[in-house]
Design a protein around this nucleic acid. Sequence first.
DNA 1: GCCGTTTTCGGCCCGACTGTTTTCAGTCG
Length: 576
Amino acid sequence: MSRNAEVAALLDEMADRLEATGVEYKPRAYRQAADNIRGHTVAVGTLAAEETVDEIDRVGDAIAAKVVEYIETGEIEELEALREELPVDIDAVTRVEGVGPKTAADLYEALGVETLDDLEAAAEAGEIQEVKGFGPKTEQNILGNIDFARESHERELLGEAQPLADRVLAHLRDHDAVEAVDTAGSLRRWRPTVGDVDILAASDDGEAVVEHFTDFEATVIEAGTSKASLRANGMRVDLRVVVPSEWGAALQYFSGSRDHNIVVRNRAIERDLKVNEYGVFDISDVDDPDAGQRVGERVAGETEQSMYAALDLPLVPPELREDRGEIEAAANDDLPALVTEDDLRGDLHLHTDASDGDGTVAEMIEGAARRGYDYLAVTDHATGPGMVGGVGVDDDALLELAERVRTAAADTDLTVFTGVEANIGADGTVSVADDVLAELDCVVASPHVSLDSDGTDRLLAAVEHPEVNVLGHPTGRLLNRREGLDVDMEAVAAAAAANDTALEINANPHRLDLRGGYVKQAIEAGATIVIDTDAHAASNLSFARFGVHTARRGWAEADDVLNTRDADAVADFLGL
DNA sequence: GCCGTTTTCGGCCCGACTGTTTTCAGTCG
């Protein structure tokens, strides 16, 4: 298992515990380091061995030493001491809305609360309202939020949150008072998972919009005059309504990320400007810039573009707003022209009822045609490591399937490539005989077993295999379920570039593998990316949307992506 | 604890909201 997420969680816990004890500034340093370790594309285990942990942004000597200590001993001594000092399940207790680290510490000191059960018991017994600084309302809020805290310890999949957001957006657009509406937050940045669904609307009549919002089929959590929250499909949906003149400022502000906005604000300060959710303000002639939210001359705010323009920047696409160098690139007029869904002309990884898919070859061709594609590759599962229950197709049957695909191809204008999804074994071998692979147009090779180790050598072997064209879902991760392989992406991408093997962004919402960070690294190393849906039914071809936005998070341009090319160029890439 | 076209010390984004208080602390995004 990649241990980056594990290490990041511990550093976040350190941040919470330091904050609980009233330490200033350090918590933020730990949280930023944790975020960057979580998003780093090289495994911390590898970095620890090479003594280069501090190459990660915002990780200095002290945190690097703690990471190495954890890798080597399985513990961080200082964290153990903090746990002993405050023996509270701080992760669980702070999951209750309104309860943060300091509240957790206060309730431990006063009432000995260590767990969610303790917290609930204390609230039910009326003990919390007796604690200094607490009152009956706080106690009731805690009680009301405990159940949800118990259920919700996973983030929501983008692939589930976005369709819900689409329905909410459509519902809001139906109302005459709504002048503009969009998603915000991590959903607008198309992160693979999101905490909640953030919606922003522009209107001069906030109350009417909120009221209409609460008509959406869902449970109302709270509803005020300009914001409201619902619970729908187990997800929290937050709406904010702003006046149209402040739409751009609010959209920029609420889209984040927090770190991106910090860089934006710092750039504003350098220019004697102030950025907030109401606009950009010129504070060069203002005595006290902190006197209010709308101090100074307002120079931007109606559109997002105006916000960035006021800072001498072009609009930064939301997918890039992660503080990964996008402001610097924007300042140098060096932002990528990101790939779009319209650029896609085909799909090179999908399944039929020959293996575990639901659709026939003809149905999948029809589905691709409906999307306006020029080509597709039929890549059913081969037998081999990870294929259980007779799902995989054996070598002889693969050749028969290829023949059927060629027959079906004669009835369509689309180019239909024969193919296979072969399995990469733990030792890097590919599960189909070379002479069979040689008969097929498009060979996808994917790891399906031993996904909890370092996979670099296996993936290198697959990438260098002369018959392999696409490395499918390279890390094998499953969101919320399994971290997937640790991979030295620079090495794999360099080998992929040298061997004309495309690296896949698997657009299945449970995978989104490669993720954005790896995509960026792969492109920088010269590799070709391919955006595939791994569709197991024609309807799954619509997953392409999530793959495209993942590619955009990896700064991918159309030229970086194999399946933006025409069928002849793809055939050429496949060596046909 | 981290960081630097205010560089090796002295700062660290900004504001709304809530509930508890009489001026503010904590949480959230």
